[in-house]
Amino acid sequence: MNIFRFAGDMTHLISILVLLLKIYATKSCSGISLKTQELYALVFLTRYLDLFTDFISVYNTIMKLVFIASSLAVVCCMRMHRVVRRSYDKDLDTFRHYFLILASFVLALLVNEKFTFQEIFWAFSIYLEALAILPQLVLLQRSGNVDNLTGQYVFFLGAYRAFYILNWIYRYFTEQHFSRWIACVSGLVQTVLYADFFYYYFISWKNNAKMQLPA
């Protein structure tokens, strides 16, 4: 464990807490893409298949359980909660996320570390996580205005993978034979996808103005 990875995990945790705060405090999920939340639930469920077979550390197990439980809780809340579900932007959240699932699965069949069930689903979860934010970014683009908590949620969600890139660079220089090409390349793509959001987020922060995304 190094400081970059710990910072990344904490930033990821903060993004989930901000999302839960937004939904429970405002009793609204406007501006939140249900499709992105479903993709994230799928990412965690397929990545942590080794939850009960490979014990890494207490921290690792607890964080995996938190990520799985919180992502499922958000999806269930957005689908079932009678007040929250009314604020879901159903007609704006129309990204065809099934294509992202299909593309990630096909790529995982082609590019993986070992052609086994667990490794293919691990690679699938890595590729899918890189693309999972797309429905959310498209929804924000369409809705134009970004409320503070939603903006902070997406910002922390993007920042966590940037910390992981620093973690992979650090591990590359401090550990022999460290090579995580699948996670590194995918993590880079994931962070780049946030680039324009980060730019407009920074501009709005600098001007202390409400964040606007160009339609």
């Binding site: 990875r5 995990d9 990821h12 080794d50 490979d54 890494i56 690792n60 964080m63 995996k64 990520f67 590019v111 993986n112 570390e113 070992k114 052609f115 490794e119 691990w122 992981y164 973690n167 034979h177 090579s179 995580r180 090409w181 699948i182 996670a183």
Partner: peptide
């Protein structure tokens, strides 16, 4: 085929 890594990251 890529080298198999230990999945110690989240």
């Amino acid at each position: 085929c890529l080298q198999e890594t230990q999945k110690d990251e989240l």
